[in-house]
Design a binder for these strands. Structure first.
Length: 561
DNA sequence: AGTTTCGGCGCC
DNA sequence: AAAGGGCGCCGAAACT
């Protein structure tokens, strides 16, 4: 057996490697070699590298020009397996897993570092959690057995493999960076904000708008200070609770227009302005750090530069290299299609089995052709909307697609009752009570005192936070299963790109960008379709549900929509 | 002075 | 009466 090998960087700068047998333990001697990259490059026959942490190892390999086909990230798998067992808050390092296995004291996880501009930070400090290879594979072999004890072992194995693949994608995207024209960015900033003044103060346009706000109030008001703005409105006889745009816009006062404009531009200035450009763009690329599986739902996060929140106007600066193109691919109505696949609702599967607009088809069946109402209803069901037209629309949706609505209702009830909720592949939502990580991860906790409530769901005893947990769980099964599917999609697309010059440069929940030579765009578009088909089949098994993409071949990201 | 939380808003 | 999920980022405010 030479298909699986384990690898462990040694403290002396070398690396330990060993072929693994069927039981996950070394099938032969553990060898020490001086050069990590050479050890991997010299073994092209290895189908999967087993290592502690992709973030520790793979950037070093990529820096040496070495790519791997597949890997297995032990600490990521530990996180998923602990979660599946309902032990969400326990330390997830390989050292902790080994200690649990051997019954020793379990070390806490090392703290994570915040991202700094221009530097890439591994998830764990590598040196503080080093394990020799023989210890590491002991954890690995145990994890293989633990997969078998899960509700769906095949799915769980697919999940850990898929997320490891996601980590390879993330590391490669971090290395590639997103093509970025600093010159275009500066031009956009100048058009929106006007000239910069010496000393780093507000640019001209913001200063003008601040003056207009002050003039409207009849005194000096700083529009970037909510407390100041609220006070100024109060003095004008208008009570506002906050300075949120939707609240301010309902007020009739001459300060509103310049204030709203100020806030919009201020946001661009502080979050994506000249200092952002200075911090995050080097050599024509924006280099955030993508982190696969950074959230409990499995969605990715980024560290640095707000890469998942690039404002539409700033996307003008994302420009392909000369002779190259951006293939921008957006999954159409991903969440309702995923709901169809996981709930097996016959009506919704039928609708999601076509590649045409899903919301239109839903509205034809349940909302007399009103697409907007249909979309609100579907999203309301997924997000747990409880007010306004949501309840009325939800009733119509429930009549026509009962299994789909029941699926998210069941998840919500499980969440409220503190039971575990899982995605299709087995990623598990932290329970509300007892898990130290749950609160830290943003899961609403129990209120000290539960109080009775009456609402559209009938009378009952449920705290605000209990309800919030229900909504969280409701959304979790859909958003998380969608994340399961996108991992398989990315893995397939990555392999296709590797057969060309194409590079994956951006991923945002349901949207990918591939940067490739002009002559490869057709092949990339085809590869996206094939990857989607494969991901759907691998993730959900035999299902009529289709996952179509809208693709655009452009030189500039802003032209994609 | 340094660190954490808040308010607001960007994206999906 | 209010009642939508997930994130990151910034400066200011609030804390130690």
């Amino acid at each position: 057996m030479t298909d699986r090998w384990a690898l462990a960087p040694a403290e002396d700068g070398g690396v330990e490697v060993a072929a693994l047998g069927p039981d996950g333990l070394p099938a032969g001697p553990v060898r020490w070699e001086a050069d990590l990259a050479a050890a991997v490059r010299g073994r092209p026959e290895v189908a999967r590298w087993v290592w502690r942490s992709t973030a520790e190892v793979y950037p070093r390999l990529l820096a040496a020009g070495v790519r791997v086909e597949r890997c297995y990230d032990i600490e990521d798998a530990e996180t998923l397996l602990l979660g599946h067992a309902g032990r969400y808050g326990e330390p997830r390092s390989a050292a902790a897993a080994l200690a649990r296995l051997r019954g020793g004291p379990v070390p806490p996880d090392p703290p994570q570092r915040a991202a700094e501009p221009g530097s890439q930070s591994p998830l764990f400090e590598p040196q503080s959690v080093h394990l020799p290879l023989t210890d590491l594979v002991e954890v690995y072999a145990d994890q293989q057995r633990r997969h078998d004890t899960t509700a769906h072992p095949d799915r769980m194995r697919l999940l850990t493999a898929a997320e490891s693949a996601g980590m390879l994608v993330a590391a490669e995207m971090n290395r590639a960076g997103l093509p970025w024209s600093a010159e275009t960015h500066r031009r956009v900033l100048h058009e929106l904000l006007g000239e910069r003044y010496a000393g780093g103060g507000e640019p001209r346009r913001l200063a003008e708008l601040a003056d207009q706000v002050s003039e409207a109030f009849g005194r000096r008001v700083r529009p970037d200070l909510p407390a100041d703005v609220i006070k100024a409105f109060a003095q004008a006889g208008i009570k506002v609770k906050s300075t949120r745009r939707w609240e301010i816009e309902s007020v009739d006062h001459p300060a509103v227009k310049p204030l709203v404009e100020y806030k919009k531009l201020y946001r661009i200035w502080v979050a994506h302005g000249w200092s952002w450009l200075q911090d995050w763009v080097r050599d024509g690329r924006f280099r955030p750090e993508f982190l696969a599986g950074g959230t409990v739902t499995g969605r990715w996060v980024t560290n640095g530069g707000g890469a998942l929140q690039i404002p539409k106007v700033i996307r003008r600066a994302v420009v392909a290299d000369p002779g190259w193109r951006l293939v921008v691919a957006d999954a159409d109505q991903m969440e309702p299609r995923v709901l169809a696949a996981i709930s097996r609702d016959p009506g919704l599967m039928e609708v999601a089995g076509r590649e045409t607009d899903l919301y239109q088809a839903v509205s034809d069946r349940a909302f007399s052709g009103d697409r907007g109402q249909a979309k609100l209803a579907v999203l309301g069901a997924v997000y747990g909307q409880t007010s306004g037209d949501g309840l009325k629309n939800l009733a119509a949706l429930r009549r026509r697609f009962p299994k789909a609505v029941a699926y998210v209702d069941d998840a919500a009830r499980a969440g409220e009752e503190g039971r575990l909720v899982r995605t299709w592949l087995g990623r598990t939502c932290p329970p509300a009570a007892g898990a130290g990580d749950a609160e830290e991860a943003g899961i609403p906790q129990d209120d000290p005192v539960e109080r009775p409530v009456e609402d559209g769901w009938g009378p009952g005893y449920a705290s605000t936070n209990t309800r919030a947990r229900g909504r969280f769980a409701r959304n979790f099964v859909v958003q998380g299963s969608a994340a399961d599917w996108t991992l398989l999609l990315l893995a397939a697309l990555r392999q296709a790109c590797a057969r060309m010059s194409a590079e994956l440069v951006f991923f945002q929940h349901d949207e990918v960008i591939v940067h490739c030579p002009e002559e490869e765009t057709e092949a990339v578009v085809a590869a996206i379709g094939e990857a989607s088909e494969l991901a759907g089949r691998l993730t959900f098994g035999e299902t009529p549900v289709r996952f179509p993409f809208t693709t655009a071949v452009v030189e500039c990201y802003a032209d994609a929509k």
